[in-house]
Amino acid sequence: MNRELLNRGLGAQRRSALVWGGALLVLTVSVLAVWPSMSESGSLDALVSGMSPELIAALGLEQFGSAAGFLNGNLYALFFPLLFAVLGIMHMNALTAGDEDAGRLELLLALPISRVSVYLNRFIAVVLVLAAITMLVGGAVGIGAMTLDMDLDITGVVAATLSIFLLAVFHAALALALAGLGLRAVAVLAGSLGVLVLGYVASTLLPLIDSLDGVAAASPWHWALGEQPLENGFDGTGIALLLGGQLILLVVGLVAVRRRTIRTA
Rank of each mutant, 00 (worst) to 15 (best):
A140L: 04
L136N: 05
L107T: 06
S39G: 10
I89S: 02
F84Y: 04
Y200P: 14
P36F: 01
V197W: 11
A168M: 02
L107N: 06
A216F: 05
A145Q: 00
S192M: 01
L205W: 08
L75M: 09
L148T: 06
A160Y: 09
R122A: 05
S43V: 08
A202V: 03
S37T: 13
G244P: 00
R3P: 05
V188Q: 04
R260G: 01
V158K: 09
F123K: 04
F170L: 13
L95F: 09
E227R: 13
A85D: 04
A12W: 11
G60N: 05
D149P: 07
L250P: 00
M90V: 14
L78R: 10
G9K: 02
E100K: 01
R104K: 12
G65K: 03
F64V: 11
G156W: 07
N93F: 05
H91Q: 15
A179Q: 02
W20K: 00
A67L: 06
T204D: 14
G156E: 05
G11L: 03
V215Q: 11
T161E: 11
E100I: 07
S211W: 15
H171D: 07
L189T: 12
L83M: 13
D213W: 13
L109D: 03
Q228W: 15
I164F: 11
A159T: 11
N74S: 12
W221E: 12
P229K: 06
S163V: 08
E62C: 02
I262E: 00
D151F: 07
L241G: 02
W20E: 04
G199D: 07
F234E: 11
A102L: 03
L136A: 11
L176D: 03
T155G: 13
T134L: 06
A67T: 08
R15Q: 12
A110I: 07
G69A: 08
A23L: 10
M51C: 10
P207N: 06
T161P: 03
S43D: 14
G236S: 15
S192I: 05
A160R: 06
D149V: 12
V186E: 08
E106V: 08
V169E: 04
G42D: 09
G214Y: 15
L243Y: 02
V169A: 15
G50P: 03
L78F: 14
I262D: 00
L128E: 07
A68L: 08
D151K: 09
G180M: 00
A190Q: 06
